[in-house]
Amino acid sequence: MSGTGFSFTIDGVAVAAEPGQTIMEAADAAGLYIPRLCDHEGLRHQGGCRVCTVKAGGRSVSACTQPAAPDLVVENETPHLNKLRRDLVEMLFHEGNHLCPICEASGNCELQAMAYRLDMTAPTRFPYLQPSRTLDASHPDIALDTNRCISCGRCIRASQDVDRKGVFGYVGRGIHRRVAVNADDLASTDASIEDAAIAAGTCPVGCIIRKRHGFATPIGERIFDKGPIGHDIEDKRRE
């Protein structure tokens, strides 16, 4: 692909890109972190959570789906964008039942880590919806606590595109849109603990729980205890 590459800027830093690359893919390769929740390495991009919203040529776009273009001027780490992102994350905290003190995913949770990164000290500006949601512990190896689901759809894409199963899917519309399993309960599907959809890291929060793995890593030694979310990408730039 040499010769077809071009460059654009993110926050004034020149970034190299290939045709077809999204802004986020080019930024990741260059060691510039753009916050994201619904995007996950190895899965097709969805552009659902809008946490990766950047200003490209002055317009708000989701960096995970917007293709990079030659000489595009992208703003990423600005107070305005980070405030918008913080508001989005805060609304996710209000929409579900996110009780960090009792959650097994605390410390491995991308929603929590994103709140830390975006300086959300406490979510109290909006009313808590406190929805009544189901807990599905029917499967011998997997439990689903949908109180913590943020509807990012990563399990849906992993199950459809990687596992070729379609265990998960969206149901409902608007604020009622939820992730559901394709049967009465999870035990009635062909979901397996080996699935990419169930693998640690696919679910960004503590909704998909691998039974008998809880607290194997103690609080304080978990993924985001070692550094803020995105530090693995940002470290590439420092090297």
Binding site: L99, P101, A122, P123, T124, Y128, P131, S132, R133, N147
Partner: peptide, 11 residues
Amino acid sequence: IMGGLPAMRNA
């Protein structure tokens, strides 16, 4: 700040 553990009974 947000109800914490006792708030588990809300839902």
